[in-house]
C-alpha cells in the first residue's frame, strides 16, 4: 500500500498542479457550465409556468434547480480528459516515457486525473452543493441536507468517475484510427450528455427509453449519483443502482484493459 502511494502520489500531485497552472481555462469552463445552467434554469422556469402545475413529472422547480446544478457539478468532478491526453501522447510519442516507468500505465493517468478531480471537487462541487442547500433552505424554509445521502452520493460519484475514466480511456484508443479527435470529442460529449441524463432527467423520458438507459453505463456516469443525493431512490432501488454502477465499473475496466493490451502491442512511436 505504501509502495502504491509512493508510486502514484507524484502523478496525483502533477494533476493538481496542472489544474492550478491552467486555472484560467478551468475558470472559463466552469463559468461556461454555469451560464448553461442558468439558461436551463430559465427554460425550466418557463416550462413550469406554462404547465401551470407545481410539479412536472414528479419534479418540483426546486428539485429541478438542484438537479441542474448538481448534475453540472457532478459532470465537473467526473470529468476525464484522458481520451485527448492519450491521443496526444500517442501522436507525439511521449507515451513511451510513460511505458518505461515501473508503474501501471492506465493507473498513472488515473492518478493524474483524480488529482484534478479533487481540486474541482473542493473549489467547485463543494461550493455548488452549499449553494444548493442555501437555495433549498430559502425556498422550503427548512434544512434539506441529508448527510447519509451526501456520503452515498460521494461513493456513487466515485464509481461514476471510474466509469467515466474507463469509457474515456477506451475512447482515447480511437485516436489510433481517427484524426478528427475534436469532432469525435463533441460527438461523444453530446451523446453522453443526453444518455447520462445530464441534459434532461431520465425520469422525463418515455418509460421504455428510461428503463433501457437506466441499465446503460451512461446513467451511471451522472444520473445515479445526482438522484441519490436528492433522495429519489428507496432503499432497495438505491442498492440496485449502486450495484449497476459497480458492475459497469468492472465491465468497462475489463474492456479498457483488453483494448489496451491489444493496442500497446501495435503501438509504434515515431522519433521521440
Amino acid at each position: 500500500m505504501n509502495k502504491i502511494r509512493k508510486q502514484y502520489f507524484p502523478f496525483m500531485r502533477a494533476g493538481i498542479q496542472s489544474v492550478i497552472a491552467y486555472r484560467m481555462n478551468f475558470i472559463g469552463f466552469v463559468i461556461g457550465g454555469l451560464v448553461y445552467c442558468f439558461v436551463m434554469y430559465y427554460l425550466w422556469n418557463a416550462v413550469f409556468l406554462s404547465s401551470g402545475s407545481d410539479t412536472f413529472m414528479g419534479f418540483s422547480m426546486t428539485d429541478m434547480v438542484v438537479y441542474l446544478f448538481l448534475s453540472n457539478a457532478t459532470g465537473e468532478i467526473t470529468f476525464s480528459s484522458v481520451s485527448t491526453d492519450i491521443g496526444e501522447e500517442i501522436r507525439d510519442g511521449s507515451i513511451s516515457m510513460r511505458l518505461i516507468k515501473p508503474v501501471n500505465t492506465d493507473m498513472s493517468y488515473f492518478a493524474t486525473e483524480i488529482g484534478g478531480s479533487i481540486i474541482r471537487f473542493v473549489v467547485f462541487a463543494l461550493p455548488v452543493t452549499i449553494g444548493i442547500e442555501i437555495y433549498r433552505y430559502c425556498m422550503l424554509g427548512r434544512i434539506m441536507f441529508e448527510p447519509v445521502n451526501f456520503l452515498l452520493y460521494l461513493l456513487s460519484a466515485l464509481l461514476a468517475y471510474i466509469i467515466s475514466f474507463r469509457v474515456n480511456l477506451c475512447f482515447g484508443f480511437v485516436a489510433f484510427y481517427v484524426k478528427n479527435l475534436w469532432g469525435i470529442g463533441i460527438l461523444k460529449n453530446s451523446i453522453v450528455n443526453f444518455l447520462s441524463g445530464s441534459l434532461i432527467p431520465l425520469a422525463f423520458m418515455p418509460e421504455w427509453m428510461k428503463t433501457i438507459l437506466e441499465y446503460m453505463p451512461f446513467s451511471s456516469m451522472n444520473y445515479t449519483p445526482v438522484m441519490i443525493y436528492m433522495g429519489k431512490y428507496g432503499t432497495t432501488e438505491l442498492f440496485v443502482r449502486l450495484a449497476v454502477q459497480a458492475v459497469w465499473a468492472l465491465l468497462v475496466y475489463g474492456l479498457s484493459k483488453l483494448i489496451w493490451f491489444g493496442a500497446v502491442k501495435k503501438l509504434c512511436v515515431q522519433g521521440g
Binding site: N180, W182, L187, I191
Partner: peptide
C-alpha cells in the same frame, strides 16, 4: 473521413438539442 466525423458530430449534437 475527418470531414464526415466533424459534420456528423455537429449534426447529432444538434439533434439531441432538438430531442430535448
Amino acid at each position: 473521413a475527418d470531414f464526415l466525423t466533424g459534420a456528423v458530430s455537429f449534426l447529432i449534437n444538434q439533434a439531441i438539442g432538438i430531442a430535448f
